[in-house]
Simulated assay, not measured.
Amino acid sequence: MNLLRAADKGCLTAAEAVAAGELFGISGNATRVALARLAAAGLVDAKTRGSYRLGQAGVALDNEVSAWRSAEARVVPWSGRWIAVLTTGLPRTDRAAWRARERALSLLGLRELQGALFVRPDNLDGGVASVRARLASLGVGAETPVFCADQFDDALDQQARQLWNADELMRSYRDGCARLTQWLAGAASLPEGIAAKEAFLIGDHAIRQLVFDPLLPDPLIDAALRRRYRDTVIAFDQQGRAIWSTFLAAARARTTVSAA
């Protein structure tokens, strides 16, 4: 799915996927099996024979994942209120549905406060209605209660504020800025295949961190440092996309020559 974002017009051929997999020591057969499983899950669709694009389920997930670039625009001042989601009564026997629900809660920065009660600061534009809609788009049923909570006692409020490790988050922002900036400075001297592999691994880690970033407000974290890290990741992602576009174009050209 990450490769589909870098592919020309959002379309990835099996040959391009196999060439990319080989960079990471993944066999062509394993890559094709992965594509088939993604297709079975509705995350990708076969556009033509041997050519894939995001499927309906993949588009919904990709829309949420891809929003990391503009996520700061969703942040509003925090009044101290919380958005709460109560998952009591939701079935756990359906493992696929349970995993999708856990992923959705994590994507929106929700953490479990007490038995099945998940919370996050109410500092996102649109408040409860927006969070409810985003959870629904990610497969969390409409029957799930999503509401605002603003009368925690002092002890519970302090417990909620400590659900996220702010020191670890800020350290990851600082270290990430340094690591990405250093790689970008030396990227031009790397062979094409090595540059593509490293850009994927380093960029994927950085983007995943931002995708699952809880977007905490200033009283809980240094939001300016988070914004600086996001700007650095955006610059890295632009360079990484250019590298992968070149790599996939070369793989496509080799396939065309072989077929001829």
Rank of each mutant, 00 (worst) to 15 (best):
A30P: 10
I202G: 00
I221R: 03
A36C: 07
A97M: 11
D204I: 13
W244R: 02
A155T: 15
R95T: 13
D94L: 07
L169C: 03
L190E: 09
I221G: 00
L23Y: 10
I207R: 04
S106C: 11
N29K: 14
G193E: 06
L169N: 00
G10N: 06
R120A: 04
E143K: 14
A71S: 11
A100L: 05
F247E: 00
T48M: 08
P91Q: 09
A40F: 07
L135M: 15
A17D: 02
L184P: 00
T88V: 14
G58C: 05
C177L: 10
D94E: 08
T246E: 12
D175R: 13
R74M: 08
W78Q: 04
L108M: 13
A253I: 04
G139Y: 05
A40V: 03
D222G: 02
W68V: 01
A14W: 00
E143C: 08
D153P: 12
D94P: 05
A116D: 15
T232A: 10
A41N: 11
R230A: 03
I221F: 04
Q209S: 09
A155M: 11
W244K: 04
L124D: 03
G139C: 08
A7G: 04
D237H: 08
R81H: 09
G58A: 02
R92K: 15
D204A: 12
Y173F: 13
T88F: 07
G28T: 12
R92Y: 15
G80K: 10
Q151Y: 07
A41C: 08
L163E: 05
N29R: 14
A251F: 06
A129P: 03
W78M: 06
M1G: 05
N63W: 13
V128H: 03
N2C: 10
L201H: 07
F118H: 15
D62W: 12
A223G: 04
N29H: 14
N29Y: 14
R241H: 13
A166W: 05
Q151W: 08
E192D: 08
R132G: 04
V59G: 01
S79V: 00
L61C: 03
A160K: 10
N165A: 15
D237T: 15
E72M: 07
V119W: 01
K197F: 02
A188M: 09
S130P: 00
D204Y: 13
G126Q: 06
F24R: 07
A36H: 13
A149V: 14
G186D: 10
Q182W: 10
L169P: 00
F24E: 07
A71N: 06
A73N: 14
A60V: 08
S258D: 06
S137W: 11
R252V: 00
G58Y: 01
A187L: 13
F247Q: 00
G55F: 01
S245G: 15
G50R: 08
N165T: 13
L61R: 06
A20D: 06
R37H: 13
P219K: 03
Q159L: 11
